[in-house]
């Protein structure tokens, strides 16, 4: 009989009309994101040993690392991620065996200006290789970084 399918379809519509709503009013409400979510990156610059494994693992050359030798140890002076080229594949996070680089749940990374896109995690001078002043310099660095952090994140 012609029209049987249409009636069946309307029946579905009628049932769905009374079912639970599942849309989320986005900016006000948000879905919770799973722990593995590939969001914005976070670098623990104290744990990072500037080994460059993450930069080598990246297929798109997103990560730029600079380091200097201080007291026979590598000192990270620059860590920049040009995330406009990032595929969010997670190869870098997987490659880091110090657990220094990780994903966060944050997902809104869009910016108004192109220059604000790169994530500048570390941009600092290497301390003088004098053992006495080294500790003091490090503390200075830390406080400097703490003050600057919000501005650099570009929020």
């Amino acid at each position: 009989m012609f029209g049987k399918g249409l009636v069946k379809g309307l029946n579905v519509t009628w049932k769905e009309f009374w079912s639970k709503k599942f849309t989320v009013q986005y900016p006000d409400e948000q879905h919770t994101k799973p722990p593995r979510f590939h969001g914005k990156f976070q670098l623990n610059s104290d744990a990072c040993i500037a080994c460059g494994l993450c930069a080598n693992a990246c297929p798109n050359g997103v990560i730029k690392i600079e380091s200097e030798k201080v007291n026979k140890k590598k000192y990270l002076t620059k860590y920049v991620m040009n995330i406009q080229y990032c595929l969010f594949c997670g190869m870098c996070v997987e490659a880091c065996n110090k657990g220094a680089l990780r994903f966060t749940q944050e997902h809104d990374m869009s910016q108004y200006f192109y220059k604000d896109i790169p994530l500048v995690f570390v941009d600092r001078e290497a301390p003088k290789p004098d053992p006495e002043t080294e500790n003091k310099e490090k503390d200075d660095d830390k406080s400097k970084k703490a003050g600057k952090a919000p501005e650099k994140e570009g929020q």
Binding site: P34, P35, R36, F37, L87, G90
Partner: peptide, 23 residues
């Protein structure tokens, strides 16, 4: 997303296995 971290571009398989076990 829960398994791989991404909704569409999973990059989950690895040569020789997979990236992570099921949570």
């Amino acid at each position: 997303e829960e398994l791989t971290g991404s909704r569409m571009t999973y990059s989950y398989a690895r040569i020789g296995g997979v990236a992570a076990d099921a949570p």
